[in-house]
C-alpha cells in the first residue's frame, strides 16, 4: 500500500460519500454542492492518475460551468430553500437496480484486477494530449464541434418561445393557462 493508493482510496471514499449524499439529500441546493465535492474528488483522482489536463478541464467545465448551470436551474425552477419531502419516488426498485449495477460492476472489476499493481506512467503533459487530439482524433474532434454547435442552437430554440412554429411556441411561451386555452380550442 503506497501513498498513491492511500490518496486514491481517500479521494475515492470522498467521491463515493458525497455521491451518496447527492442522491439522498432532501435539499436541492445541497445536492448541487455535494456534487461539486464529488466532482472535485474525481478531479483529484485524475491528477493522481497523471491525467493533469483532464483534471483541470474537469474542474473548469464540470465544477465551474455544469454545476453552476445546475444551480441556476434549481433556482429558476423555484426550488424551496429548505428540505423538501417529495423529491423521491418509491425506493426499492432504484435500490435494487442501482445496487445491482454498482456492485456488479465492482465485482467484475475486482475479479479482473484483484490486488495487482501497475506502474504509473510519468506525469502526462498537455502537449502529448494535444498531439493526439489534433492528430489521430481530429475528425471526431471536428464532428464534436458541430455537435456542440447544434446543441447550442437547440438550447436557444428551446428556451426562446418566439422562435419556431407559431402554435407550439405561443402555448409554450405563455404558460399553463394558454396551454389550456389552446387545448380547449
Amino acid at each position: 500500500m503506497t501513498g498513491v493508493d492511500a490518496l486514491l482510496l481517500a479521494l475515492g471514499a470522498l467521491a463515493v460519500g458525497s455521491a451518496v449524499l447527492v442522491v439522498t439529500t432532501r435539499h436541492l441546493v445541497r445536492a448541487g454542492l455535494y456534487l461539486v465535492v464529488c466532482l472535485g474528488a474525481v478531479a483529484g483522482m485524475y491528477l493522481v492518475l497523471t491525467a493533469e489536463l483532464v483534471a483541470w478541464v474537469q474542474v473548469l467545465i464540470y465544477v465551474g460551468a455544469v454545476v453552476v448551470l445546475l444551480l441556476f436551474a434549481v433556482m429558476l425552477t423555484r426550488a424551496p430553500v429548505g428540505a423538501s419531502d417529495d423529491l423521491d419516488r418509491p425506493g426499492w426498485p432504484a435500490a435494487l437496480i442501482g445496487g445491482g449495477v454498482g456492485l456488479g460492476l465492482a465485482a467484475l472489476l475486482v475479479d479482473a484486477y484483484r490486488w495487482t499493481t501497475v506502474e504509473l506512467p510519468e506525469a502526462g503533459s498537455a502537449e502529448r494530449i494535444g498531439a493526439q487530439v489534433f492528430g489521430s482524433w481530429v475528425l471526431p474532434f471536428e464532428v464534436l464541434s458541430v455537435l456542440l454547435l447544434s446543441a447550442l442552437v437547440g438550447a436557444i430554440v428551446l428556451s426562446r418561445p418566439d422562435i419556431g412554429s407559431a402554435g407550439a411556441d405561443r402555448s409554450a411561451g405563455d404558460g399553463p393557462a394558454t396551454e389550456d386555452r389552446e387545448r380547449s380550442r
Binding site: P93, I97, V101, G104
Partner: peptide, 13 residues
C-alpha cells in the same frame, strides 16, 4: 427508465 436500466443490468448479468 427503470425498465431500460433493469434490462441493461439483466443483460450484463
Amino acid at each position: 427508465v427503470t425498465a431500460v436500466l433493469a434490462g441493461a443490468l439483466l443483460i450484463g448479468l
